[in-house]
Computed example of a mutant assay.
Amino acid sequence: MPKDPATLASDTSPGCYDLFDAAAIRAEVDAHLAGFLQDQAESACGGRLPTLVTDILARFLRGGKRLRPLLCTLGSLAAGGCVGPPVIAVAASLEMFHAFALIHDDVMDRSATRRGAPTVQQELAGHYLAQAPRRSGSRHIAQAAAFGNAGAILIGDLALVWSVHMLAAAGLDAHRFARTRTVINEMHHDVIYGQWLDLHAVGGSDSDVETPLSVIRYKTAKYSVERPLHLGAVLADAPPAALKALTTYALPIGEAFQLRDDLLGVFGDPSVTGKPVTDDLREGRRTLLLATAHALADPDQRRILARHVGDPLLTEHGASAVRTVLNETGAPEHVERRIATLRDEALRGLDDAPITTASKAELRTFAHHMTERTA
């Protein structure tokens, strides 16, 4: 039977605690990831896996907010469970899966930086060039880029496989493993479908608002917030009512989280966000911000948007012209108001939710953090 959601977890087994400590959870997840990578470096392919591969993945995993692992552990606490080694292992598997998603996303978007450092494909291309420093020319550069892209896809694939291995090695009983696998399968489908929608949206209608919202729902709200919360909750045998309440909170706050990301992708500080503020515009991503601006723009402003958004050679001068149009149309203010509305909706969903009182307070804090952040 599930535990009483009105109280905190009573499970005090060794290594299991019932208070949400973000710093401690991050440290435990980091330690689990580091230990797993070390084990794989020594055992995978009979120890013959190239050090370059594990080193690059280890460096990549050292960045990030650990949002999904934190929400996973909070999901367990919300359902009256606790945070112990199995929960940490499952939470860490989410971060490994996220590495796969980001690495592949960077290849698809032809991104040069991630988390303030070169993307995996850029690092591999640099390694390729360093192996033959005396060779030069456009053909050699093209070969390096091809090597980088192919290698990044393989490293991303490896992160996906290892995320499944981490889940299988979490020490769950058959019942919890089955419930966990159901959530993980749904999450896998969500992120791939969201990525497909995002890919398909490029080149679509400039004023289309519904497609960007669908992308946000699957690529971020479900994948980044709802599924991690559900994953932790099923580890604590959460009843359907608790899962439904977590969804009521997760979807609007996940959408607001992505809308904030879209604003930071154009107006953020690269030294804080860790990525350029021209990538989204250069790629031509169909965000709610751009769709709103196009719908409100006059003909001259639309010509500026058409000239620069989606230009693979976009300069900072062109990006500045786009930002001017966005500000003139009031599109950022529209998005800010939507973020506030979604946050309020998520917070209202917590009022009568059948989850622990302490977790409600943490989720409220998360709601403000995810929507008011600068990185």
Results as ranks from 00 to 15, higher is better:
Asp105Glu: 01
Asp105Phe: 00
Asp105Val: 08
Asp106Gly: 09
Asp106Phe: 04
Asp106Glu: 06
Asp106Arg: 08
Val107Phe: 05
Val107Ser: 04
Val107Pro: 12
Val107Met: 07
Val107Lys: 10
Val107Ile: 14
Met108Arg: 11
Met108Asn: 07
Met108Pro: 05
Met108Gly: 09
Asp109Glu: 03
Asp109Leu: 04
Arg110Met: 02
Arg110Ser: 05
Arg110Pro: 06
Arg110Asp: 05
Arg110Glu: 06
Arg110Trp: 03
Ala112Glu: 11
Ala112Asp: 11
Ala112Arg: 08
Ala112Thr: 13
Ala112Asn: 07
Ala112His: 10
Thr113Asp: 09
Thr113Glu: 08
Thr113His: 12
Thr113Ile: 11
Thr113Ala: 12
Thr113Phe: 12
Thr113Lys: 12
Arg114Asp: 13
Arg114Thr: 15
Arg114Val: 15
Arg114Lys: 15
Arg115Ala: 03
Arg115Trp: 04
Arg115Gly: 10
Gly116Met: 01
Gly116Asp: 06
Ala117Arg: 15
Ala117Cys: 09
Ala117Met: 13
Ala117Leu: 14
Pro118Lys: 00
Pro118Asn: 02
Pro118Asp: 02
Thr119Phe: 02
Thr119Glu: 04
Thr119Ser: 06
Thr119Gly: 06
Thr119Cys: 08
Thr119Met: 02
Val120His: 01
Val120Trp: 01
Val120Arg: 03
Gln121Asp: 10
Gln121Tyr: 01
Gln121Val: 13
Gln121Thr: 09
Gln121Phe: 05
Gln121Arg: 13
Gln122Tyr: 04
Gln122Thr: 13
Gln122Pro: 13
Gln122Ser: 14
Gln122His: 13
Glu123Ile: 14
Glu123Tyr: 03
Glu123Leu: 12
Leu124Thr: 04
Leu124Tyr: 03
Leu124Phe: 01
Leu124Ser: 06
Ala125Thr: 01
Ala125Gln: 00
Gly126Ile: 08
Gly126Arg: 15
Gly126His: 12
Gly126Gln: 15
Gly126Thr: 14
His127Leu: 12
His127Pro: 08
His127Met: 14
Leu129Cys: 00
Leu129His: 00
Leu129Phe: 07
Leu129Thr: 02
Ala130Leu: 08
Ala130Met: 12
Ala130Trp: 08
Gln131Leu: 10
Gln131Glu: 10
Gln131Pro: 05
Gln131Tyr: 00
Ala132Glu: 06
Ala132Gln: 08
Ala132Pro: 14
Ala132Phe: 03
Pro133Cys: 01
Pro133Arg: 00
Pro133Glu: 00
Pro133Tyr: 02
Arg134Gly: 09
Arg134Gln: 07
Arg135Ile: 00
Arg135His: 14
Arg135Glu: 09
